[in-house]
């Protein structure tokens, strides 16, 4: 590999942007395709799929056989609320390969006894969230039920274009939340990106089941191409109405 390509690749990785190295296995020639350049690339369809699946591999192309080394940032899961659901959601998220952080200013909740193996920050979102580098490769979940904590965090998640944003609460609770977020100046399209009620409809009742429903929904957003042909994961420039979810999902 050319040192220039390697250096550029590492720069993309540090910046948490996807990139693919395309190697012609016939002659060893290589090129780097940055995420921003995928849309204009001759291998666009293959690159998009590979980035979405985070899967390296061989491809037959009109130009010959190529090997695609796919580099995507490791996803992170940021949760507000060191609550009962989080006690399952955090370890399940870790099992699925996410770097998990819980933010909750209420020290009684955010204790090491309740979360022995998770990064928990006992601070308000305005202090805790900016250093976390919340970005498109982040799933954000608001679970406190407290607008003072969840709302600023949701605004942050929307501004940072998280690939998944979910908020706990009934339809009634969410209607009130929508009104507050509109008052804060967010558009309908932005607000439509929030999954609420949160989680796949699997009939979840217990906090642990709700955690599974949430993680299932996050996985759908991570891996499945949208109905409207827009991948949720690799295209940070996309957003808004293209992300609208099917109505009627949700379990809590």
């Amino acid at each position: 590999m050319n040192l220039g390509i390697l250096t550029a690749l590492n720069a993309e990785r540090v910046a948490r942007r996807a990139a693919v190295v395309v190697t012609d296995v016939g002659n060893g020639k290589q090129r780097l395709v940055k995420q921003a350049d995928v849309a204009g690339d001759p291998l666009k369809a293959v690159l998009e799929k590979r980035i979405r699946m985070a899967k390296s591999g061989m491809e037959e192309t009109p130009q010959g056989r190529v090997f695609l080394t796919v580099h995507v940032p490791s996803p992170q899961l940021v949760i507000t609320g060191a609550v009962h659901i989080s006690q399952t959601l955090a370890p399940v998220g870790q099992l699925l390969g996410y770097d998990v952080t819980i933010v909750d200013p209420r020290t009684a909740f955010a204790s090491i006894e309740r979360f022995p193996d998770v990064k928990v920050i006992a601070e308000w979102p305005d202090v805790a969230l900016p250093p976390l580098g919340v970005d498109h490769y982040t799933a954000f979940v608001a679970l406190t039920h407290d607008p003072k904590i969840d709302d600023p965090a949701l605004l942050h998640a929307l501004a940072r274009d998280c690939f998944y944003i979910g908020a706990l609460g009934s339809k009634k609770t969410h209607a009130k939340r929508v009104a507050r977020l509109k008052e804060a100046g967010r558009s309908d399209a932005d607000i439509a990106r929030i999954h609420a009620p949160i989680g796949l409809d699997i009939g979840a009742i217990s906090p642990a089941e709700i955690a599974v429903a949430i993680m299932g929904e996050i996985t759908v957003r991570l891996r499945k191409k949208n109905e409207d042909a827009t991948s949720s994961f690799p295209s940070p420039e996309k957003g808004g109405s293209e992300r609208q979810r099917r109505s009627g999902e949700g379990s809590s």
Partner: peptide
Amino acid sequence: EDILKAAEDWR
């Protein structure tokens, strides 16, 4: 990432 960073640094 450590491996590729090492490759760059070593070179």
